[in-house]
């Protein structure tokens, strides 16, 4: 069976251990995690986790069911029609061509967000695939550090 990429949102009770339960499930059953983000849902007792994973049809189905089986899980959404965003922060030496980089940032829904005496930091926020392209595109400016946020997603 072919492996597919899937973005899954899990709405869980915002309580101790819950992240460990989810990540432990993936580790224990040998599922892949490409990225995992989590933050509380404003005005509620729940948190929203976005997990990007890969697997064949049976594995994805098991992931969804096993996630659902966790006691603190309220809802599992296997995204189909979604808005997906990831953010990346990239640090460059102050010697780098800031104008070129800024132009690139704009193409990827970003900007220069910080600058100091020795370095400046660029940010982009876009689909995970486009973020990968952005990173490729700035490779030639020899970035000093790259931090990706992991994906967040919302069903349309």
């Amino acid at each position: 069976m072919d492996k597919v990429r899937r973005v899954i949102s899990v709405i869980v009770a915002n309580e101790a251990q819950v992240l460990a339960r989810v990540s432990g499930l993936f580790a224990g059953r040998g599922y892949n995690i490409d990225s995992l983000t989590v933050a509380p849902i404003p005005g509620s007792n729940f948190s929203h986790m976005t997990i990007v994973t890969r697997g064949n049809r049976r594995v994805i189905e098991q992931i969804v069911k096993q996630l659902h089986k966790l006691i603190p899980t309220y809802k599992v959404i296997e995204h189909e029609e979604m808005v997906e965003k990831e953010m990346v922060l990239i640090k460059f030496s102050i010697e780098s061509p800031i104008a070129e980089i800024q132009a690139l940032c704009q193409a990827y829904n970003g900007s220069i967000v910080n600058a100091g005496p020795d370095m400046f930091i660029a940010m982009a926020a876009d689909e995970a695939g486009r973020i990968a392209h952005f990173i490729e595109a700035v490779e030639r400016y020899h970035p000093m550090e790259i931090v990706r946020s992991g994906v967040v997603a919302m069903e349309r």
């Binding site: 101790a16 251990q17 339960r21 432990g24």
Partner: peptide, 16 residues
């Protein structure tokens, strides 16, 4: 204890 037993319990609690 909750860490060790997580994969071999239906659910577990550390009372806080």
């Amino acid at each position: 204890a909750v860490g060790i037993s997580r994969p071999c319990t239906k659910h577990n609690y550390l009372v806080r």
